[in-house]
Amino acid sequence: MKFVGIVGTNATQSTNRQLLQYMQRHFEQQATIEICEIKDLPAFNEPDDRAAPSTVQQLSDKINVADGVIFATPEYDHSIPAVLKSAIEWLSYTTRPLINKPVMIVGASNGSLGTSRAQAHLRQILEAPELKALVMPNVEYLLGRSLQAFDDQGNLTYPDKVQELDNAFDEFVDFVDLTTKIMPSSQFFEKSKQFSWKQVTGEE
C-alpha cells in the first residue's frame, strides 16, 4: 500500500515529523509512506481563479494516487496549527483530493495529553462536506511526552506506544481495504471538483 504522511506543522523541530519518519521505517514491510511537508505552501487566501498554486497541486497529486493519508498534527491552542488548517483549506477549495480518501490521524505533543483536542477538531474538519475524507473511526493515536519519546536513531522508545501504533496501523490497513470495497468509485459523484463556500447555498 502507498500512503502519504502529512507533517502538520512548519516548525523546524517537530516530534510529529519524527513520528512519521519512525512510521515510515517501522512499517516499511506493510506500506510505503511518503512524507509531505506543508511548510512551503503559501498561506491560504481565496484565489479568484480557484487554481491551486503549484506546491498545493503537487501535494494534491500525491494524495490522489495514494491509498490513504496519515495526518500527524501538533496541538496549538487546543486545535490544529494554522499552517495545517491552511493546507486543508487549499485542498478543500481547489482540487479536493481527500474525497473518500481513507485518513488516519496521529499526533505528538510534549504534554501528556498528546494532541487530543487538536485531533478531535481535525476529525470534524476533515468530515466537512468540502473535504469528505473518510477518517478512520474508533482509533485515536495520541503520543504524549514526545520530546523524550525518540532515541538518537529516531526510534520510539515507549514499548506500550509502539504496540499501540502497530495495532492502529494494522487497523488502518484493514480500514483502507474495507473502504475500497464499500466505495465503488461510480457510486459517488461530486458536482464539482472545485468548491466554494457559495456553492453550499446553491448560488452557483
Partner: peptide, 20 residues
C-alpha cells in the same frame, strides 16, 4: 469568524497563535 471546513479560517488561527 466565517466557517471554513467546520472550523475557523487558518488566517484567524494564525494571529491567535502569534498572540499566544
Amino acid at each position: 469568524s466565517p466557517e471554513h471546513n467546520h472550523s475557523i479560517p487558518s488566517a484567524l488561527k494564525s494571529i491567535i497563535e502569534w498572540l499566544s
